[in-house]
């Protein structure tokens, strides 16, 4: 962890209630790690995943859901933020895998972007499935395509891409609780999406669970929890795993398939 003062260089709306913020600063982050941002007038920092980290720059994408993110959306370029960086374990990418599948749900998608870049650098071409509520909330579709990746979009209301949930696009409907029948065939370009040997997922817990149930291969899942500190000091974010109690902020947010207890 490092405590840094980072200047906002961009803060723009990119979809309904969703903003992209760029911060100038030494952009060291592993995919799946997050930053914890101090906001004027609020006591607790707010954790946001790193979407991209390049030379001298961090990118985050956040959805306005409450006071903290509302405030964040008002910050002009030039404003300096107090940010804790390099938090969390991040995804483990030193794996003997060929064809990873990345599954993102809503604003769970951003950390998968940096992950996709890093996997690409390792010579792996991930497939990407991104799920949203509706077309106006879609983010990062073009950015993933610009990396040269195949992207499947799902929307719950069917306003874009496959109607339904990410699991409908993954095409492994067996055993998915509440999955609607008949969508497997309706998946655009679904042929071949079953062709993956590893899963990386980030999104709401219900989505993570559905992806876990719908896939048989090994994988890593990124979780969220309310945080008091974000760096391991308060035990606010603990969860039970098959290998004991873990702090989502420190031993997580990414848990391996084999350790998850739902």
């Amino acid at each position: 962890m490092e405590k840094m003062l980072l200047k906002v260089t961009e803060n723009v709306k990119i979809a309904k209630n969703i903003y992209r913020m760029r911060l100038a600063g030494e952009g060291k982050a592993k995919p799946g790690q997050f930053v914890n941002i101090m906001l004027g007038g609020l006591f607790l920092r707010r954790p946001i995943s790193v979407c991209d980290a390049a030379e001298g720059e961090f990118t985050i994408i956040y959805k306005v859901v409450g006071r903290g993110t509302e405030l964040l959306a008002t910050y002009p370029t030039g404003k300096v933020l107090d940010v804790l960086t390099g938090l969390g374990n991040g995804y483990d990418i030193n794996l003997d895998i060929m064809r990873p599948l990345l599954v993102g749900g809503g604003v769970g998608s951003p950390p998968l972007y940096l992950l996709a870049k890093r996997l690409f650098e390792l010579g792996k071409t991930p497939r990407v499935v991104l799920g949203f509520n509706t077309a106006s909330e879609i983010i990062l579709e073009n950015e993933f395509r610009d990396l040269g990746l195949e992207v499947n979009i799902t929307t719950i209301d069917g306003s874009r891409g496959t109607r339904g949930f990410v699991t409908d696009a993954i095409g492994c409907l067996s055993g998915v609780e509440g999955a609607k029948e008949g969508f497997a065939g309706a998946v655009e370009g679904a042929e071949g999406t079953g062709d993956f040997d590893y899963v990386f997922a980030c999104g709401p817990e219900a989505m993570l669970r559905a992806v876990y149930d719908a896939t048989q291969v090994d994988g890593q899942f990124s979780f969220e929890e309310r945080m008091g500190c974000g760096f391991g000091a308060c035990m606010g974010c603990s969860c039970k795993t098959r290998y004991g109690y873990k702090r989502i902020c420190t031993e997580g947010p990414v848990l391996k398939r084999g350790e998850i207890i739902w």
């Binding site: 006591f43 006071r67 929890e225 309310r226 945080m227 008091g228 308060c234 606010g236």
Partner: peptide
């Protein structure tokens, strides 16, 4: 001790509320 179920942290005006429960 594991402590209490999560969420166990909440924002408060000029402070925070915790129900960690002695983990």
């Amino acid at each position: 001790r594991f402590g209490n179920p999560t969420p166990r942290i909440a924002e408060a005006p000029m402070g925070m509320i915790n129900s960690v429960g002695l983990q």
